[in-house]
Design a protein around this nucleic acid. Structure first.
Length: 193
DNA sequence: ACGATGATGAAC
DNA sequence: TTCATCATCGTA
């Protein structure tokens, strides 16, 4: 089973999408080379009331994409050095997105099995949103594009089932500025090892 | 523990 | 136009 995730998958609550993206696949294609990763860590940024979200300050040139259609890519430069990869969620005009924080490299032999049960997905790891985008050569050129083969970056369901007990919920990383309430909300989802 | 490094948003 | 801040990471 290999199904490209469509807008309807992303057009839901950001925390739901963040949770459901665990065990889904991120595919990056550049020329003939295709890299497949299984998503292992995400964070939800949900609505303009979310003080940790860039959209908390309203619609600006940067955050406009978060108000756009679900399934589009929101990519921005962080700390002057690292690009963050997000995918927009929820209905139009409702600003929300999911940050992809970590993913595991799918080995080529497993990749060729096409839907076979997964054994070796702990082999290689992209841990950290900045390292992930660096590895996949993701930058602002992809910002505002719809996640799709045409963009060279898309999401797939390959039939991996994730058990609820393998998902850990924690506060989001690096959002102390959001204040005591919003910085503590458990909107980070980690696939346990 | 800290510096690299530049876009962003708000103040002026 | 200046300024503080920042959804990070590698080096120490």
């Amino acid at each position: 089973m290999r199904k490209i995730l469509k807008q309807e998958f992303f057009n839901r609550n950001a925390s739901i999408v963040a949770r459901d993206l665990l065990g889904k696949f991120l595919v990056r294609k550049m020329g003939r080379k295709e890299i497949v990763l299984m998503i292992t860590e995400t964070e939800a940024y949900d609505g303009s009331h979310d003080k940790a979200s860039h959209a908390h300050k309203g619609k600006t040139a940067r955050t406009e994409i978060m108000f756009g259609p679900a399934g589009h890519l929101y990519i921005y430069l962080c700390y002057g050095m690292y690009y963050m990869l997000n995918v927009v969620t929820g209905p139009k005009e409702y600003p929300a997105a999911v940050l992809i924080r970590a993913a595991k490299l799918w080995t080529s032999d497993v990749q060729s099995l096409d839907g076979a049960p997964i054994k070796d997905w702990r082999a290689s790891l992209c841990d950290g949103p900045g390292k992930l985008t660096k590895f996949l050569k993701i930058d602002k050129k992809l910002n505002a594009l719809r996640a799709s083969p045409k963009a060279g970056l898309w999401f797939e369901d390959r039939g991996v089932k994730i058990k609820k007990r393998d998902i850990k919920k924690t506060p989001r990383v690096g959002v102390g500025y959001a204040g005591p309430v919003w910085s503590k909300k458990k909107m980070r989802f980690v696939l346990c090892c």
